[in-house]
Design a protein around this nucleic acid. Structure first.
Lengths: 222, 222
DNA sequence: CTGTGTATTATTGTATACAATCAAACATTT
DNA sequence: AAATGTTTGATTGTATACAATAATACACAG
C-alpha cells in the first residue's frame, strides 16, 4: 500500500506520462534496454501509442532517478552502473538500512511485525523447496516492510530509490542462491526488533547488507 | 567544478527548461514561493517569457527533487517540510556524512586537503569578525569539499540532494550563530582526515551533524 | 434555507507544428 | 588522398492548439 503511496505521487499511473514512466522504468530495470542504448522519443512514443510530450516528461523523471542520462540536443541513453557504483550503493545502503532497522524497532506496529513473521516463515519454506523466484520476492518485501515500519517517509524514499539499482544488479548476477542465509539474517533482525533492541537490530541490518555485497563479489560480480 | 558537474546534467542551463528549473529551484529555496503555494504553468511561463512546455518539464524534475508536489489534473504545490522531516533528514545525513568523512580520509587529494585547510583558516577569521554570511558560505563549502573528496559520485549526489533542505531550514531559523563552534568541529574532522584516521573522522562528522541538529532544536526550531 | 445537479471557467494533459541543433554523407579544394 | 566545407536528414527543443478534468458559481427542487 504505502508502496504505491510514494510511487503514485511520482508516476501517476492513470496519465499517459505516468504509464510511459512506469513502463520505461520496468523495461530498463528488466534489461530490455541495455546499458548505453539510445532511447528516441518518437520510437518510444510509437511503441506505446502516445505522442512525444508525455515521453519527454517521463524522460526528465527517469533522468533524475538515475536510469537514463539526457545529453542536450542529442538524446537519452540508458545509464550504466560501474562496479564502483555498486559497491558505493551497498555501503550507503548498509548505513541506511541500519538506521531503518533502528527506527523500525522503535515504531513498528503489531500488523507490520506480523507480516514480517509471516514473511520469514514463508521464506523458510521456499528456501527448502528451492523456489528462487519467490525467495527474491519475499526478500524485497522484507526490506520494504522494514522501511515502512521505520515510520520515516524520508528514509523510506531514499531506500526505495536505491532498490532499483539492487534489482538491476540482481539481473546481472542471475540471483545467486544466497536465499537461505539471507533469510536467516532477516530472522535475526526481526528477533532484535521484537526484543526492542535498537542497537542490535541496527548492527545486524548493517551487516546483512555488507554480507549481501560480499556475496555479490564472491559470485563473480566485477 | 564538480559542483556543476552533477547539476549541469540535470539543469542544462542553456536550454529554456534548464533556466526555468534553476530559477524555480532558487525561488523556492529562497522562500519567494511559500509552502503550499500553487504554481500555475502559464503564470510561471509568462513571468519567465517561455511557453508551458519547458515549465511542465521543469515541474516534473522539481517534483522528483522534492521541492514541489504535483497533484494530477490539479496543480503543483510547493512542498512543506515538517519538523519530523527535518529531524529525519539530519539523522540520515549524520550517517552519510560520517561515511563521506571516512571515504574522504582514504581518498582525499593534496589539493582538496589544502582547500580544506584554507577553508577552516578563513572561517576562523570570519568567525572572529562576526561575518555570518561568509561563515555560512564557508560552512557549505567545507561539506562539499568532503563530498568531493569521498571519491563517490553516488554519495556526493545523495548528500547534495539533502543540502537543499538544509538551506531551507536555515532560512527559517535565520542562521543561528553556531558558526564558531561548527568551525571548530570542522577543524577536528580535518585533523582526523590528515591523521588518516577513518574511524575518528567518521565519528566526528557524525557527531557534527547531530550537534547541528540539536542546535537547531535549541534555537527554537519546532 | 439547504442540498443537489448543472453550466461555466480555469487549469492541466496531450498532440502536433515548427525551430534549432547535431551528425553523417557528400562535395570541394589543396 | 587528406583535410575542410557544405548539404541533408534525423532528432531534440519549444510553442501552440485542442481535449480532458476539476473547481466554482449558480439554478432549482425540496
Amino acid at each position: 500500500m504505502s508502496e504505491n503511496d510514494l510511487k503514485q505521487e511520482v508516476t501517476d499511473k492513470y496519465s499517459l506520462r505516468g504509464r510511459v514512466f512506469s513502463r520505461l522504468r520496468e523495461d530498463i530495470l528488466s534489461g530490455k534496454y541495455e546499458e548505453g542504448e539510445e532511447l528516441r522519443e518518437v520510437a518510444i512514443g510509437e511503441e506505446l501509442g502516445v505522442s512525444r510530450t508525455p515521453v519527454r516528461e517521463a524522460f526528465r523523471q527517469l533522468e533524475l532517478e538515475g536510469l537514463i542520462r539526457i545529453v542536450p540536443n542529442k538524446g537519452a541513453y540508458v545509464t550504466g552502473i560501474s562496479a564502483k557504483d555498486v559497491k558505493d550503493i551497498y555501503m550507503i545502503r548498509s548505513r541506511l538500512e541500519g538506521l531503518a532497522a533502528r527506527w523500525a524497532t522503535e515504531h513498528i506496529t503489531d500488523e507490520q511485525l506480523e507480516e514480517m513473521e509471516e514473511n520469514v516463515y514463508l521464506a523458510k519454506f521456499h528456501a527448502e523447496k528451492g523456489h528462487l523466484e519467490q525467495l527474491a520476492e519475499l526478500d524485497n518485501r522484507f526490506h520494504e516492510i522494514m522501511y515502512e515500519a521505520s515510520g520515516s517517509k524520508m528514509l523510506e524514499h531514499q531506500l526505495k530509490d536505491f532498490h532499483q539499482y539492487v534489482i538491476r544488479v540482481r539481473k546481472k548476477t542471475l540471483s545467486s542462491a544466497r536465499g537461505p542465509k539471507s533469510n536467516l539474517e532477516h530472522e535475526g533482525i526481526m528477533e532484535a526488533i521484537k526484543a526492542r533492541d535498537p542497537e542490535l537490530s541496527e548492527k545486524l541490518a548493517h551487516e546483512h547488507i555488507i554480507n549481501a555485497y560480499e556475496n555479490l563479489v564472491k559470485n563473480g560480480f566485477a
